[in-house]
Every structure is written in C-alpha cells, then in structure tokens.
C-alpha cells in the first residue's frame, strides 16, 4: 500500500450563475500523503476554499465532477449516509471564523461530544465527557472542566478556535482540512494556533490541507505548496523549492508583492482577479495579467510540467517571464 491518503483527480466544482454553471475549481489534480501538510495558497476567487469545501462535500448547490479518493473511497459519488460516517471521523475541518463556527446556544462540551457521539457509539456518556476534557486539555485550554460547561460567547476568539480544533480532531481524523484557520486572529494568537497545529500533527498523524492567503503561514507550516489562480493549480512544489525557486509568473508576482527587507516599492500585479463568470477558460489564465509577455510564449492548452522532481508549473510562459519594472532582468532575458 502506498503512502497516499487523498487523491484528487480532475476535480471541477461549478456554481450556477443565471442559467449556466461556472467552474470555480477547474480540473484540479493533486495528492496528499499521510502525515503531510499541503499548503494551498491563493487570493480570493482562486478557488482554494471551494476546493476545501468540495473535499468535505459541504457545498449544497454545487456541481462536482471528477474524483476525490480518500483511502480509495470516492467522496464525490458516495451516498449521504456513508459520507456522514466519514465526515468528522476520517476527515475533519477547521473553519476560518471562530466567532461564528460554534453554535451560540450549545455548551462547548456538548458541541465536542456531538462529534464523539456520532462516530463512537461504544463510548458512553461518561466516556464522552472524559474524552472531551482530554481534548480540551490537548488543545491547550486552561480549566477544561469549566469550559466544558461554558457557552461560546464566554470565550475569546483564540480559545474558540482551539475548541473548533478540538471538535475537528475528536475522532483522530486521517485528513484535516484547515480553511484559513488563523485569518481572523491576532498575530500572537495566530502563532499559538499554528504551533498547536504543528504539535498536534505529531500526535495524531493526520494529513493536513492548509488553505491560506498568507505566504508566511505556508512557509512556516507546509511540506508542499500548491498555488492556485483562477480555479487552477499553477504551481506545486515542496515548500523549500517553491520559496527558493518560484517559477510561475503568478507565484513570483505574489511573492514580490509582500513587503520584505529593503524593498521600497512592492510589485503590483496588473489588472484584477477575474470574477467567476469572467474567468478566461482558454489558454493561460494569467496571460491577461502579464500582457508584456509575448502571446507565443503561452501554451494553447497549458499543462503542468514537471520541472524537477516534485516541482510542477503550468504553462510555458514561466520560461520567458520577467518583471517589467526590473530593467536589468529585462535586458538579460530570463535569469
């Protein structure tokens, strides 16, 4: 048996606008190994959250095509009752906003116990309570017996996010999807939550998909990184390779727009992120944002090319890409 936990093949997730379906996730293929952290980076509208929701099948009104194989079971085609056996057990999700992701009228303890109750019938009421207290301890919540009785509004944002993590890891999931888990939190809390996820990873041995817009967060957390633009993966590589040698024009542009040491002007990507309805469906989707690159450098049907082992880039335009405001690079061609 291979080390493969999750295999996504030609996944497309489409939403209906008016009378037509538009793919927010467009033909995505990727794999996640056991114990691996895969970061998925992109801006709003890149399809990264739609991808996460598709894996959990949380979209109620989307059309999903392709295959999502978790331990060789296809989630896309699964019956609802089978799906509910897997959700919360084999796979679980950490949500973005801790202020809204908990039921305001249910005590914290009951919200965690619900997950235990649904997947572990053998555990009695007492067993569930013990396990819940244990989980609250595990995610670093002080005085768990008290928090067990409390309601969400009595906890701070950081504490609530820990509760959400406790819910997610209650049944030792093999796949953990974290959708922007720290975006709504303060920096010091963010650091604590990220450290917690890192520690938990060692303990529960889950494969983690970490969705974020924050390049710093991926740099610290991920083993491999997939960069998404306009519904597609444009680059995927082990984290060191991606940051040391980013290839796709979008990845490079994105890295250049984050403030770093000794930079006076930040790089600005021309134009705007296309809306779902206006996504360019033919050719290189990033082409219109880099008009100074000659059209002949793009592929007609851009494919992912393996540049070196494990490092894939979509389209051939990366070979000819340069930043227009960098005169030197322009003169020398590709460095």
């Amino acid at each position: 048996m291979s080390n493969e936990l999750l295999k996504i093949k030609n996944l497309s997730t489409s939403f209906r606008i008016g009378d037509e379906y538009y793919a927010a996730v467009d033909d995505v293929t990727l794999t996640l190994n056991k114990n691996e952290v895969l970061g998925i980076v992109g801006e709003s509208g890149s399809g990264k959250s739609a991808l996460a929701f598709s894996i959990m099948r949380l979209h109620t009104k989307a059309k999903i095509e392709g295959e999502i194989l978790l331990n060789n079971q296809n989630i896309v085609k699964m019956s609802n009752s089978k799906l509910n056996k897997i959700r919360g057990d084999e796979m679980a999700m950490i949500f973005q906003d801790p202020l809204t992701a908990l039921n305001p009228l249910m005590p914290i303890g009951r919200q965690i116990e619900e997950n235990l109750f649904l997947h572990n019938k053998k555990l009695g009421q007492q067993g569930r309570k013990e396990r819940t207290i244990e989980l609250l301890n595990l995610v670093g919540i002080p005085r768990p017996e008290r928090v067990y009785e409390q309601f969400p509004h009595e906890l701070s944002g950081g504490m609530r996010q820990r509760v959400i993590i406790a819910i997610a890891i209650a049944n030792d999931p093999e796949l953990l999807i974290a959708d922007e888990p720290t975006t709504a939190l303060d920096v010091t809390i963010q650091a604590q939550i990220l450290d917690l996820v890192r520690e938990l990873k060692e303990k529960i041995h889950a494969g983690i998909i970490l969705i974020t817009h924050d390049l710093g967060v991926v740099a610290e957390m991920a083993d491999r990184v997939a960069v998404m633009y306009a519904g597609q993966i444009v680059e995927i590589a082990p984290v060191e390779k991606l940051f040391a040698n980013p290839l796709h024009p979008y990845t490079r542009s994105l890295l250049n727009s984050v403030p770093t040491e000794g930079q006076d002007r930040l790089h600005v990507i021309q134009g705007v992120v296309p809306t779902l309805k206006n996504l360019p469906r033919k050719g290189c989707r990033f082409a219109e944002r880099i008009p100074w690159i000659d059209a002949s450098h793009h592929e007609e049907n851009p494919e992912l090319h393996e540049v070196e082992s494990g490092h894939f880039v979509r389209c051939t335009c990366y070979e000819h890409f340069y930043f227009p405001d960098n005169k030197e690079e322009q003169a020398n061609g590709v460095s």
Binding site: V187, Q190, A191, D195, G216, V217, A219, E220, F243
Partner: peptide, 20 residues
C-alpha cells in the same frame, strides 16, 4: 509580537519555532 510574525523563508522554520 515580532516573534509572532511568520517567516517567509521555510529554511528558518525550526529556528523561528524555537525562537518563538
């Protein structure tokens, strides 16, 4: 606060983790 800023260089990961 400064220690909490994520480091954009994955090579500093362990170092950053310990420093924090």
């Amino acid at each position: 606060l400064i220690a909490a800023i994520p480091d954009i260089n994955p090579k500093n990961r362990e170092e950053q983790f310990h420093y924090r």
